[in-house]
Each structure stands twice: as C-alpha cells, then as structure tokens.
C-alpha cells in the first residue's frame, strides 16, 4: 500500500502501470468496454475488411497503432491545446499517424496495402480513435492514455480477428491464408460477401451479450 502511495506521489510513467486501478484501464478496453462488441463503434472497417483474418489483423493493428500514437501525443499536449480548437487538433494528429501507417504499410507489403484499399485512409474517421482522444487522452496522464489505447487497440484487433477468422474459415476454408480444411469442404459463399459480415457480427454480438448477461446475474 505504501509503495503505491509513494509511486502516486511521483506521478511518473512507471507508477501508472504499477498503480492497480490503471491496469484496469487496460483490461476494460479488451473486454468490458470492447470497442466493437460492447460500444459497437467502428462498424465500417469491422464489416468491410473482415473478409479474411489477415486483412482483419492488419486493419486492427494499424488502428491500434494510430490509436496508441495519437493518444500519447494528445495526452502530452492536453494542457497546451486550447478547448476551442481541440477537435481540429485531434483530427490533425490522427490524420498524421494515419499517413504514417499508410507509408509504413506500403513499405511492408504493397499487396496488403492494396487489399485494404481505401480503408487505411478511412482510419482517420474511425470513431474509436476520436472518442478515446476526446473522452480519455485529453483528460488523463500519458501513462493511463497508453494503457487505454493499448487496451482499446487490442480489443479492436481481437474483435476484428474474431469476425475475420469466422468469415475466412467458413468462407474460404482457411485461416490466415493457411488452408487446413479438406479439399471437399463446401465454402460458404455468403461469408466472403458483405452480408456475411453482418451475419457474423450479429452472431458474435449475440454470444458476447449472453456472456455479459450471465456474468451480471452471477
């Protein structure tokens, strides 16, 4: 207890991690306030690029990166940014990191960049990022913001991977490009079509919510 208090008084980066309630900032994004399954934010990328696990993973990581970097910068500058121009500043910062990840992705793989297409640029308008900037990073310390961004980013990636995984396994008989189903596997064509995204998301929401209801009762 004394250690925690001591750390708190320092208000440093490490203390935030050691601080018990802050660890909760991380967990909440992954599970309790999962951006896709609980907050139902960022539906456009979660439906559009989740037709394969690889695309979903790339999209999730790209968003997580933008989220992390923008949260850090916004939280660093939170006292410096005047209230009146805060949204403009947040968008500017977010757009910058989207451009950065756009270049980085091209440097890693042109094919991947092409399969994600315009959705990389559209990370700018992903409401998860702006909502975390406005609701969290602009009011909290850098350490907490990092944890929040990591939690939310991992939560988003996890959700996308779930949707993408189900759609790829049923729709193409493979996972992350690795075909493990026998040749005679009947592919569910609907799963690679946009309709499959809606079906899968709805089904996962159903499962997630039934878990939640059970936990609340217990």
């Amino acid at each position: 207890m004394s250690v925690i208090n001591q750390n708190k008084s320092e208000k440093g980066f490490l203390s935030s991690i050691a601080d018990h309630p802050s660890t909760d900032e991380f967990i909440k994004g992954v599970w309790r306030e999962n951006p896709v399954f609980v907050q139902v934010l960022g539906m456009c990328p979660s439906l559009a690029v989740s037709n394969s696990a690889k695309n979903a993973l790339a999209m999730g990581l790209a968003t997580a990166f933008v989220l992390l970097m923008s949260n850090i910068l916004i939280s660093l500058l939170r006292d410096f940014i005047p209230k009146q121009v805060r949204i403009a500043s947040y968008i500017l910062i977010i757009a910058t990191f989207v451009t950065v990840i756009d270049y980085a992705m091209q440097a890693i793989s042109i094919e991947l960049h092409k399969s994600l297409g315009a959705f990389i640029a559209l990370i700018v308008v992903n409401c998860i990022i702006l909502s975390r900037a406005e609701a969290f990073a602009s009011k909290n310390t850098v350490g907490k913001s990092i944890l929040d961004a990591l939690g939310m980013g991992i939560g988003f990636t996890f959700a996308l991977l779930c949707i993408g995984g189900v759609r790829e396994i049923l729709g193409s008989g493979s996972f992350l490009g690795f075909e493990f189903m026998p040749d005679s596997f009947e592919k569910w064509v609907i799963m690679v079509l946009p309709a499959g995204g809606f079906f899968t998301l709805a089904f996962l929401l159903l499962i997630f919510n039934s878990f939640k209801i059970k936990n609340n009762r217990a």
Binding site: V85, S89, L92, I93, T99, V100, Y103
Partner: peptide
Amino acid sequence: KKMVIAMGSIGLICALLIVLTYQGT
C-alpha cells in the same frame, strides 16, 4: 494567439512526422 500557436505547432509536429516517415520508407 494561443490558439494560433497551438494549431501551428501541432501542424509543424505533424508535418515533421510525415516527412520523416516518407523519407524513412
């Protein structure tokens, strides 16, 4: 003045980041 400075410096930081990434990649 504060607003202009804030927006301007954020713009500068962002521009710097983009240019650096562009060069690097």
